[in-house]
């Protein structure tokens, strides 16, 4: 293990859950905080497996990490809006799970905020369906819970 190449001169190989291998620069990989400790110990033959990340997600993450620094400071908002614009709710959720697992700089906030906008001012039933939540309250428990915060259930959008 003594003859390791300097990590800064090597690209890092990342393997997604669906078996694709991506080569990224250390500068990009280091912004995925979860794998940072693994990068230090890796050489050009190391492949880091990402069990919760699909190729689609990693492609988007790399697009973000490469594209954001290239945008002018005043164009960052526009870049971020464009980045999430064509993603379906399922893709947004999947990407949020992936960036949450990898702890990607800046992207966790953007994805969490984007998902939050999808459930803002929606009914309880809508949000349960959105997240695939099974209601494990008895009707009496749920009624008690609603009563506790009755002010929070007025005036939501139609589903």
């Amino acid at each position: 293990m003594a003859e390791k190449a300097s990590p800064s001169s090597n690209s890092i190989s990342l393997k997604t859950v669906d078996g694709k291998i991506f080569k990224v620069s250390p500068a990009i990989a280091n912004q995925m905080l979860t794998i940072q400790p693994l990068i230090k110990d890796s050489d050009s033959s190391t492949i880091i497996s990402l069990p919760d990340v699909a190729a689609f997600h990693l492609t988007k993450i790399i697009e973000y990490l490469e594209g954001k620094p290239a945008a002018a400071p005043s164009a960052v908002d526009a870049f971020e809006a464009q980045f999430v614009k064509d993603l379906s709710p399922e893709e947004l959720k999947g990407l949020l799970i992936a960036v949450g697992y990898l702890k990607v700089n800046g992207l966790v906030d953007l994805m969490a905020n984007t998902v939050a906008k999808l459930i803002e001012n929606k009914s309880v039933e809508y949000v349960r369906k959105f997240f695939g939540v099974v209601n494990d309250f008895t009707p009496a428990e749920e009624a008690k819970c609603r009563q506790e915060h009755a002010w929070a259930f007025d005036g939501v959008d139609e589903d």
Binding site: V124, R128, F131, V133, V134, N135, F137, R146, H149
Partner: peptide, 8 residues
């Protein structure tokens, strides 16, 4: 706060 009734 409204998410508190989604599930336990």
């Amino acid at each position: 706060v409204a998410t508190s009734v989604l599930s336990k």
